[in-house]
Every structure is written in structure tokens, then in C-alpha cells.
Amino acid sequence: MSLLEFVNRMLGKESTSSKNIAKERLRLVLVHDRASISPQMLNKLKEDLIKVISNYMDIDEDSMEVNLSQDDREVALVANIPVMKMKRDYSTKG
């Protein structure tokens, strides 16, 4: 136990306690377990999404976020994709 941890515990703060670390890690791991999707697969999904969306608009790939979020026993795929520029109407092209 480091000195900081010790002082925190003396003060009754729990933020550094290992159970909170366990809880947070579990929460994350279970989101993936329950959706039966691996981080690798999520990355691939992200790449595919970029490919498809890029046909229609320019997006900020670096700040794009694709995550699984969990609510009780439900899991949702939440994507936050900043749009930089719309492309011209696709159907009128060529």
C-alpha cells in the first residue's frame, strides 16, 4: 500500500480500493462477454463502418467512437461519428 493510498483510506475514501477497480474491469469485460463480441471484432466493425459512411460523407475518423454500452442486461452499440463534410448527392453522380 502506498502512502497516498494509506492516507486516502485513513480519510475513508474508497476510490483507490481494489474492489472498485475490480467492479469497473468486470463491467467492461461483461459488456463484451454478453454481446459475444471481441475487441478485435469491434475494431473491424469500426473499419467497415468508416468504409460505408465514407461513400456518403467525410467523417473525422480519429475522434469517431464506437462502443458497446450496457444497461442492466441489455447491450447497445453506440456510435458517435463527427461529420466533417457531406458529399454531393450520390445518386446523381456519373
Binding site: 474508497e14 480500493s17 481494489s18 474492489k19 475490480a22 442492466d72 442486461r73
Partner: peptide, 18 residues
């Protein structure tokens, strides 16, 4: 261990497993 915050307690586990 639960008391000093180094073991998940009942509420923590029930919250996770629902």
C-alpha cells in the same frame, strides 16, 4: 476485506449480475 474496500460486497455483485 469487504470493509476495507478490497472485496466486492453483496450489492456490487448483485448490481453486476442483476
Amino acid at each position: 476485506m469487504v470493509k476495507r474496500g478490497d472485496m466486492m460486497d453483496m450489492a456490487d455483485i448483485l448490481d453486476i449480475l442483476a
